[in-house]
Computed example of a mutant assay.
Amino acid sequence: MKPTIKICGLQGVEVLKSIQSLPIDQIGFVFAPSKRRVTTEQASEMIAYLNHIKGQKDRNLPISVGVFVNPTEEELTQVLEHAALDVVQLHGDESPQFCEWVKKKFGVQVYKVISIRGEHIDVNVDASWFDEIRTRLECYQDVIDAILLDTHDPVYGGGSGRAFHWELIPQYAEWAKQAEIKLIVAGGLHPDNVRKLVDAYEVDGIDVSSGVETNGRKDIEKIKDFVERLKRDDYSS
């Protein structure tokens, strides 16, 4: 099965109108500090547009994902009272208890981001590096729907536009499969490398933001190119 596609960091309805015909599975709205940050009103407008066109299409349209970093309960409540998100993506140090509260309180899916730092680990020599990580992940197993791997950014936590070492993916993928949780990969993806990733590793979803931008703004042609390369039927390189 082909991985789902999430285009993250949209800030206006006009971009949605330009890409609504593409087979995109998720649209991401950033509520955390970022140059792509949106207000609740902006997100509500885009979600309303998605809901408006759902009745006019004969296929599934993208679901909405809100990206947060260490939000308070009050912040999440304020946002979700006005923006009917389908998924809350938590990009900080949120505890399993907080994830469980979000899931039960709002009835949404919860994605927990795992920020991967730049150091390289020779996984072929020693796989014990994952033991501690596995122990931490198991605490989240029953309260999240997906883990999302992204490159650590010291300022924003993620969204750096840099790739991490993909050799680390199989350990996470094996755990996610056993836990029956989706595995999504972000970090430095763009039209020229996304097929390399999906041909080499089994992932459930792909998340892209800066890789489909030009001068900090979403580039419609790059989005189309990204989606075409990922969704085409022939998966041979």
Rank of each mutant, 00 (worst) to 15 (best):
Y156T: 13
V110E: 05
K112N: 04
E221L: 08
H190A: 10
H152Y: 11
L137F: 06
D142F: 10
Q141C: 09
I184E: 02
G118A: 12
V208D: 02
V212C: 06
S210E: 04
Q109A: 15
K196R: 15
V113H: 00
V198I: 15
A173S: 11
G157L: 07
E100A: 13
D204E: 12
E138L: 13
W101D: 03
V125L: 15
R195S: 14
V102C: 09
I181R: 14
D199R: 15
D145P: 06
G161V: 00
F106Q: 07
K222S: 13
A176G: 01
H190M: 12
D131C: 08
I144L: 05
A200V: 01
P191M: 06
V198E: 03
R136Y: 15
K222H: 08
D145S: 12
R134E: 14
E174C: 14
V102D: 04
P154M: 09
L148E: 01
D122M: 09
I147H: 00
Q109F: 15
I116V: 14
G158P: 01
T151Y: 07
I220G: 07
G159H: 03
V208A: 03
E221M: 10
D142S: 13
V110N: 03
P191V: 06
V212L: 10
D122H: 09
T214H: 10
F130A: 06
E213Y: 05
Y111G: 01
K222T: 08
I181N: 10
H152K: 09
I181A: 10
D150C: 01
K112Y: 06
E100G: 08
